[in-house]
Design a protein around this nucleic acid. Structure first.
Lengths: 242, 242
DNA sequence: AGGGTATTTTACTCACGGGTAAAGAGGCCG
DNA sequence: CGGCCTCTTTACCCGTGAGTAAAATACCCT
């Protein structure tokens, strides 16, 4: 019961012993911020593991080896905690859009870069909060805020698609539907990534992009098998029935 | 307070007045089943609207204009309610797999047929329960059951993809990743369909299949614009900056 | 050294909602 | 008619978990 502190935050406290008198208070502020972030990350991880409603603030506090009111010292409500996790995840994606805006490459490549970061974000600890959290769990105000952020990203993707179609790097397609399909495939990572971490988020995004770009229909080499051959292989449960 | 019954179930009661003495009890059983289904559908709709945890059994009961214990007369727990909704949704997809097994067409077309039904199922009232319900909300036994059903579907899709690659109707690809991408895109429908019902589930699936099949890279006509042209259009935030 | 501030704890409150016991209401059948 | 089975209600119980008040501790600065 009394294996208290002696832990990370305390250890990282005296960087320069002989510092200005103001140093301490600055350290203090920085410390507070770090702790606040730790709270949010812990919440994200716990939400990710057990879902929002199955995670109590006591759980989160326990995970940090503190008590519930300590958590409330850093955030005002559980709802806000979820909100912050959401924003943390989304921010990664928004950053990707900003970065990519500089690049002087065809829109398809800019899109790919965004999607790679998107995949990383969804596979991150904040992925669950971004993707699986229900807006019904938040106050109308926060819910609206989140919806607008999501919408911003959606429209960002659509725009890149449209630009790609215009500059010829993407074949003609319905931007809205294509954006939904892309985002869906990537968002879904948050549902299965916990179970299967054999690839990083970026690698998964890469693989998905390859699938989307190439398309499933056999390319160029006009379908190695003839149409006749194709149907012969079937015609009533033949191979691979196991 | 007493605008009670006089409603659908009661109305549909005397089909053939002059029936066998046993008829009544059979009617009774049928009635009970209908009511049970109504309970499950109501639950699905409510879960869909407000999420599992934000829906109380009182809500569901109220929606049916009965009281909570009545609901408990038909199901044993809230958990079971969620489970049944899930199964109801998944069953549609399993049926699609069964149907399609008969068809003597290339695997790609069988896959498409499955995906169309898949999209319908996800856009149905049970879509939310299938896709967004968290297995942490269920007992380990039910959770395992659900996981196995999900896995069955996943592997069904993978198999169709592999068969497609073999019979040449699908270009070479990683079956697992492709299945994830397809399922993800379709599952995601459950997240946005509520807001935008301009298309049916089947139409969305159709559109997605077209995107996946064709691929985003410009086809055949070797990219209408030259590579030079492509980059010229960019090179620092030109058009469509709004 | 000691007042003051920042942080964390102990010890609560309280509403909500899942679940149940037991009493009615509505027939069906003898 | 009167007992019996089916279905529904009223009236509860009780655990859980969000959120808080107020005391305690740690830490800084003069």
């Amino acid at each position: 019961m009394n294996n208290r502190r002696s832990s990370p935050a305390a250890a990282a406290k005296q960087p320069t012993p002989s510092a200005s008198p103001w140093r301490a208070s600055r350290e203090r502020v920085r410390d507070r911020e770090l702790k606040r972030e730790a709270v949010i990350r812990a919440a994200a991880r716990e939400f990710n593991r057990r879902g929002y409603h199955n995670t109590s603030l006591d759980d989160i506090a326990a995970r940090l080896e503190v008590t519930k009111p300590t958590v409330y010292y850093y955030v005002t409500s559980k709802e806000q905690l979820l909100f912050e996790c959401f924003v943390a995840g989304v921010e990664q994606i928004r950053a990707a859009f900003r970065d990519v805006r500089q690049l002087a490459v065809p829109a398809r490549e800019r899109l790919n870069a965004v999607l790679r970061h998107y995949g990383e974000a969804v596979a991150s600890e904040f992925g669950w909060c971004m993707v699986r959290a229900e807006d019904q769990d938040l106050s109308p105000a926060m819910s609206r805020h989140i919806k607008s952020l999501k919408s911003e990203i959606d429209h960002g993707i659509r725009r890149l698609i449209r630009e790609g179609v215009q500059d010829g790097s993407i074949g003609p397609c319905d931007a809205k539907m294509t954006a939904f399909a892309l985002a869906g495939a990537l968002n879904w990572i948050a549902h299965w990534y916990r179970e299967d971490q054999s690839l990083t988020g970026a690698q998964i995004a890469e693989a998905f992009v390859a699938i989307f770009e190439g398309g499933l229909r056999p390319r160029g080499s006009a379908s190695r098998l003839s149409a006749r051959e194709r149907t012969r292989r079937r015609a009533r449960g033949s191979l691979a029935r196991r």
